[in-house]
Design a protein around this nucleic acid. Structure first.
Lengths: 342, 342
DNA sequence: CTGTTAGCGCATTCAG
DNA sequence: CTGAATGCGCTAACAG
């Protein structure tokens, strides 16, 4: 139903090839100005717009970036982290006049099953939002030769481009903050062990602990999910420990966990930060408004998205070589949820 | 680079047409079971997946829905309303194994300019997130014969399908709540006058006011934007009124405005709800955690998204006729920001 | 300077 | 039951 290039050609009294050249600005193939005029007028009179899929088939860019993520059944509501990253991506994408495809049906654990749809020609490149380390999607994509960049994750492969924060350092700094307040027994409530940020933050936590001569106690490391409910449950478990084994502070793998943990501790009658300090990671919007406000390690999520999108664009235009691993800094934000132990 | 149907055909020793028939389950054109087997095996061995754009060009569905919205430069961060709707949409879309395109470059005021990209063949239908009433996008889409549904807006045209809440009733109910507390002088801080929800809520507000014999005072209606900053500014203006003309309560067009207004009032030394009551609309997540918690009219944003996506799917599959105007109920949520006047 | 031709990968007639 | 031919709308050589 939409007007095709043939109609424009007919109205301008030229061939399709000519229309294509004029409209794509291939001035290289010199075309009489008068003809150019005629074509342009015909096109605009007809309200012509090329079919994206047809030009895609013919081998041109689609000016479309794909965003891949998997979050079970819910998305933004449960992941302010993802929402902020997406926000950053969209800013850059919109400014660059590109479009966006959202792939929500992925199962990270099985790229063989989900990959085809990612490379069936609909987008020029992919942005992967923190896939778990054990997913086979990265090798699959590498093999498919589709440009992509990892966001919120890094990968040792020399051809994988990524944008992430320094999780090890971030976790180390916030743990040091806790130590500097006088805490010696600090728990780590983390996300799923297969996600790389979880192990990296564990590393930073352990580094800080040991640098201070505190013994690393694995029983204080409690894996779960990056969700509020998980924080709630783990904190309850923590509180079941004999009083002399209870930590005086807890570092949570992200703010969602921290907020859940604070809720549980509150329900159990513990006062924060008097009885126990709680620290998070990310600095999502609600960290500032929680009760008490949450001490956390801020991640520039918006920037993460912006930079990742910009890099993918550069990769697609071959302006940049793949393989760069960009690391953004984090920032300690001290609020009301941490204080010296009683 | 990806494997094409020709390769599958070659490997199975049949023609492309046969492969297409087998893989698309056109058992109508009876094909020997042995052949079917051979084709299927060849396809899976080769890891074949059809090119979406090629089959799109050949006239098939792309299994892709487009989501259109325009929010200036920022998106989710500034619009929890939109994020919640998107969440609902994605749930349905993911379950239906469809994909999603996000169109962020639209300028509602000029559909002629932005429309082409929406109908260049990349998606089977469109979801429009509350376009302003005066936008010419609806007539343009109607003319283009592309299935679409309006979310968070309604349109009188008999062929336009939409999903929205009853804004008039919602605004009326919450205004009545304020009146029942004893307020007689109630301001309305609203969003941009061109958005239909703004005028509908104004209607409900006015209905409630007048039903109670209170004189409608246009100077208490303050238009702005659906943003926190706007609420902040308008509330300051409000406070500049001579003490005897100040309202004792303010109904805000959405929660963002309400939160901004509460911040301004707080900064000006007013106590909420003792000195002035504040009510919002939407019930975004932060409404429950604000200080004080916000009384508001809850909108089932998640459902809005789910239903809209389901209807669009039905429209595309021609399971449903266009034109249905679905209206979802709102629910009054009384919290700490409203109380009887001093 | 411009028209013609040949695919891109797939679905779909229409003949056998 | 299966193959060959055609076209979807567009771009990119290649001729003139």
């Amino acid at each position: 139903m939409p007007v095709s290039i043939a109609e424009v050609a007919a109205r301008a009294g030229v061939s399709q090839g000519t229309v294509s050249k004029v409209l794509n600005g291939r001035v290289a193939a010199q075309i009489a100005l008068a003809t150019q005029e005629r074509v342009k007028i015909a096109a605009s009179e007809l309200g012509y717009h090329p079919s994206a899929i047809a030009r895609g088939l013919a081998g041109k860019r689609l000016d479309t970036l794909g965003i891949v993520f998997a979050q079970g059944n819910t998305f933004f509501a449960t992941s302010p982290y993802f929402a902020a990253i997406l926000d950053g991506i969209l800013e850059v994408v919109t400014r660059a006049k590109q479009n966006t495809m959202l792939f929500t049906g992925q199962v990270w654990s099985d790229a063989r099953q989900g990959l085809p749809i990612l490379r069936d020609g609909r987008c020029d490149g992919l942005l992967l939002i923190s896939p778990p380390a054990e997913s086979d999607i990265v090798p699959a994509l590498l093999e498919a030769k589709l440009p992509f960049v990892l966001v919120g994750d890094i990968n040792p492969h020399p051809l994988v481009t990524s944008v992430d924060v320094d999780n090890v350092m971030g976790a180390r700094k916030i743990t040091e903050h806790l130590i500097s307040l006088g805490h010696r027994r600090i728990a780590y409530l983390c996300g799923p062990p297969t996600v790389s940020s979880v192990s990296q933050r564990l590393q930073g936590y352990q580094d800080a602990i040991e640098a201070d001569g505190i013994e690393f106690d694995l029983s204080l490391v409690m894996p779960g999910a990056y969700l509020q409910e998980s924080g709630y449950e783990r904190a309850r478990e923590l509180w079941r420990l004999p009083a002399d084994q209870r930590p005086t502070a807890v570092f949570c793998g992200n703010d969602l966990i921290a907020i859940g943990a604070m809720a549980a501790l509150h329900d159990l009658g513990a006062r924060i930060p008097q009885d126990i300090s709680v620290a998070g990671f990310d600095d999502i919007p609600s960290a500032a408004t929680s009760q008490p406000s949450l001490t956390t390690m801020r991640q520039p999520m918006h920037l993460l998205g912006q930079h990742a999108a910009a890099r993918l664009l550069a990769l697609i235009q071959a302006t940049e070589e793949p393989g760069f691993k960009e690391v953004l800094p984090t920032e300690l934000v001290v609020r009301g949820s941490t204080a010296p132990p009683a």
